[in-house]
Design a protein around this nucleic acid. Structure first.
Lengths: 338, 338
DNA sequence: ATGAAAGCGCTAACAA
DNA sequence: TTGTTAGCGCTTTCAT
């Protein structure tokens, strides 16, 4: 690997001149600029990012914290964040916390020790230890897919209320009148918002979502199975069910297939997330796509802005993006009577 | 962030003494060691990894190159590599090439400019430009899930021939005599090996895998659909089909469901990879699990060994790990006659 | 417009 | 056993 010094020697100038020629903020004579540029090309010089990082305290490195990696949602975050970072000339260090506070702490600390330019958190909670560590430094941070009570950290989220509205409107437009819902954990605000959007839209249309038709799941496949089994076993009245994520919707489809109940003939099923497998199923899952790509692009945007222009530039503290309905094969007009 | 200097001042010693106390290779008096350690605790000092990286040329940073991120297989690689790296005190920078040579080149170059300790490639080909760039430096590299013709870069792979044997033996043991196969691209060695293991085991048992019962796919869902449709439409004789990955197996199941052919009643279906969704389907997919976790652990092991003990330590150039059969619901005794 | 020199935070050779 | 000094590769005063 060649260094600044090599370039300087070859071009017959000082290292500072080379540095200036590269960073181009300070006036340089055309003549020397050309000589330097030629030298750079000749030995294929690329600045060492570690040295640069030490000197200017900016490493062009972003950190992404996810609770787990082997999960479609976080995989999407990784994918789109990497894409957005790379487009802006940044590299990405990823770390999974696995719900282990020690790992989380170690990871954040490492990022700070690496003079990282910013950290993107997916799904931290208000009480996460990570935020306390962060408070002791001034590393820019942004949160995707959650909002916090404290308002000093910017966040990027989907409009969860709108997703509930969207789900209800789609099903209502097909003619359904009796609804069910399998929610995510209701101690998390986004799930309450989704349910509120769904419920209020249904009520406003004069249709029904009875209390016994709402099941609180935990976003896992198994809880989708549990929820639909509960509805079926208790004779809950519904012709359409919305699950707060696709994994739970798969659980629903699994049980319905096992019990020989036809989808969408007897029951319409709607998911949320639009994960890869949703179109590989038969029938393919109708779902609501979260704007994950845009969320990640926005998050990277915010973090880089903060990193380069300092604290709270622009003052954007909360970005809300819209979901999108993806109609496939698991929803249709209700054929069966109750 | 506190620095070595702060610790030195507080403990009343020189910075070199602090450094030595931390790295612990050179004798230090118990007395000073205690003083230094106290000072470190008092101001919660953590060495700056950038400065360290510049000085000792080791950053405790590993790079992982994947062709794409939103794919179960590469997601697994990311997950397990991160896990293995973190366990050894390393962080992971990931980059996706998206089959774009420019992106690939840029990423590798960045890694080198970051004084990275080693690079793990998943699925490079012999002609990949990446290897040429690498040749110009002496950054340790290792390849997972592929072997190259050139023998100077270590690799970690599954025993692909064994997976073919395993597939055939399982199906044979259930009583199948007429087989089909949807392969991955046959210009890639691992797929030829899989097919060879399958074919030779079937022949050895006196059963048949006719030429018209072999379809060359491309690892995508769609090509699984294509393959099975081709078999069905041409009346190819088989009661069991093995797809070289789970995505293609899903394509097979999708078409069979559409055509009302029962699985495993009429046709047994076997996959390979054991991706998350394989147990969410109904019926759940019988498949062969690749030892991805062990592959990643081994790869990280090799790379760190090379990074710390220099070139080719131990001389292990090729690690071959065994697949594992996961029996679920898509395979059974052949009930239908041909 | 350019060069000399200092320094980012650390480690290592050399001296004591 | 410890301190002094130099230097990793870069940027940035401060002179000129």
């Amino acid at each position: 690997m060649s260094s600044l010094k090599d370039v300087a020697r070859l071009a017959g100038v000082s290292t500072s001149t080379v540095s200036r020629a590269i960073n181009g903020n300070i006036p340089i004579s055309e003549e020397t600029r050309r000589r330097v540029e030629k030298a750079i090309r000749d030995i294929n010089y690329k600045p060492n990012l570690v040295a640069q990082g030490l000197r200017i305290k900016s490493t062009k490195l972003l950190g992404l914290v996810v609770p787990e990696i082997q999960h479609e949602t976080f995989n999407s975050f990784i994918c789109f964040t990497e894409e957005a970072a790379e487009a802006k000339g940044y590299n990405l260090i990823i770390g999974s916390t696995d719900s282990n506070p020690d790992r989380e702490e170690r990871f954040i600390e490492n990022l700070i020790r690496r003079n990282i330019d910013g950290i993107i958190f997916s799904r931290v909670s208000d009480k996460s230890h990570a935020l306390k560590i962060l408070d002791k430094t001034n590393v820019p941070a942004v949160i995707i897919d959650r909002t916090l009570e404290r308002e000093d950290i910017p966040s990027v989220v989907m409009d969860n209320y709108a997703s509930g509205e969207m789900a209800a409107k789609h099903l209502l437009s097909l003619g359904h009148r009796h609804f069910a819902c399998i929610t995510g954990p209701l101690d998390i605000a986004i799930n309450r918002e989704r349910l509120a959007g769904y419920r209020e839209t249904i009520s406003a249309a004069g249709a029904t979502l009875e209390e016994r038709c709402v099941f609180e799941g935990n976003f896992k496949f198994e809880s989708g199975k549990k929820g639909i089994s509960y509805f079926l076993d208790t004779g809950a009245p519904f012709t359409a069910v919305w699950a707060h994520n696709d994994y739970m919707a798969f659980g629903v489809l699994n049980i319905l297939a096992q019990r020989g109940i036809s989808v969408p003939g007897q029951i319409s099923v709607l998911g949320l997330d639009n994960i890869t497998q949703s179109w590989m199923m038969h029938p393919a899952l109708t779902t609501i796509a979260q704007p994950f790509r845009d969320m990640c692009i926005k998050a990277v945007d915010i973090i880089i802005n903060r990193a380069t222009h300092g604290e709270n530039r622009g003052g954007i503290m909360k970005v809300i993006l819209q979901p999108e309905l993806i109609v496939r094969e698991t929803t249709s007009i209700p054929r069966a009577s109750l």
